[in-house]
């Protein structure tokens, strides 16, 4: 390390006086917050995996999650309902991207339209989850009670439902707070806050959070419903 006469660096991103990543601090914090939240969810999912790996057998998700609202008796439709939920979340992520894009182009009406769609998508997802939870609860599943047998017909511990409700609940809580954030963004947009500020950076941060919620669902969906 020497006294610096190292002036001839092409882009001096790191030389101080500017953000080395060309992003404002808020976005940087949002990214790192999401990274730490990844570890929260990661830890929960890995805990689930650890318990599953230390059990001799585990319930088959296809036998558990096989209903949808208004289903006729005696039929079973594994994976159908959850695919709809997944799709809702992906589409709401797409509308969020459109809202962010519209914000970058300073088109207020387009931002409002897409934000409303995103909020509706979030609410739809939450409703689906509420229905699924109620349905499972009526089947006798809850924290500390598991009516389902293991795949090989042996008695299952309660940890299948324990983890299911804890992790989807924690994810649902994130969706819920995401919806709240989006509603706040909508109100702020309608009040011309961002127009006056001259940029819609706040929406970008809200967007990052919303996509993260979608991202987590990709993992939850795979870990609980598919494998």
């Amino acid at each position: 390390m020497s006294t610096p006469t190292t002036a001839a660096v092409p882009t001096k991103w790191w030389s101080g006086g500017k953000s080395p990543f060309n992003v404002e601090y808020g976005k940087l914090m949002m990214w790192y917050f999401l990274m730490s939240d990844t570890f929260t969810f990661g830890a929960l999912l890995i805990a689930y995996g650890t318990i599953r790996f230390s059990s001799n057998s585990w319930p088959n998700p296809n036998e558990v999650f096989q209903s949808y609202p208004g289903m006729s008796e005696g039929t079973s439709a594994p994976l159908v309902f959850v695919s709809i939920m997944t799709f809702i979340l992906i589409i709401s992520s797409v509308t969020m991207v459109l809202a962010v894009r519209a914000g970058q182009e300073m088109k207020k009406n387009k931002v409002v339209f897409n934000l409303i769609l995103t909020i509706l998508g979030g609410l739809a997802f939450l409703s689906c989850q509420a229905w699924e939870w109620t349905h499972l609860h009526h089947e006798g599943a809850w924290w500390g009670s598991n009516p389902f047998l293991n795949e090989d017909g042996t008695q299952s511990s309660t940890n299948f439902t324990n983890f299911f409700f804890t992790i989807t609940g924690f994810h649902g809580f994130h969706v819920f707070s995401g919806v709240i954030i989006n509603i706040i963004m909508l109100i702020m947009t309608l009040n011309n806050v961002f127009e006056k500020r001259g940029h819609y950076l706040m929406i970008e941060k809200a967007g990052l959070y919303w996509h993260f919620v979608d991202l987590v669902w990709v993992f939850v969906f795979t870990c609980f419903y598919l494998i």
Partner: peptide, 17 residues
Amino acid sequence: STQKVEIKKETHSEEGA
């Protein structure tokens, strides 16, 4: 943990439905 349970599953899914 390897002892199979007698199947009473039908009742559950009926209840659910």
